[in-house]
Design a protein around this nucleic acid. Sequence first.
DNA 1: ATCATGACTAATG
DNA 2: CCATTAGCCATGA
Length: 89
Amino acid sequence: MTDFEQDVFKAVLAIPFGDVRTYKWVACRIGRPKAYRAVANVLAKNPYPLLVPCHRVVRSDGDYGGYLFGSRAKKNLIKLEKKIKDMIK
DNA sequence: ATCATGACTAATG
DNA sequence: CCATTAGCCATGA
């Protein structure tokens, strides 16, 4: 695994439950504001599917972006997490 | 070193 | 939602 991937996962893992961040946000987080595309690339190949909350990473334009199981599932997961979050609160 | 490939971004229809 | 245009970057061939 490359250093870049490590940084990406580290950033994604840091996203709190029920919260969402953009690819751009992750890119900035790892100190490469312009590598948002490469970030998406990493998640696309995601060596650890399901170990990383990649569903919490969405597009900057408000769209949900892609997902291993389809953007629909991604949307549902995000909604579900928010729901659970409110349920506890 | 060059080229193609994306779960991207921003702007425009 | 779709499509295009241009810019962007790590990765693998």
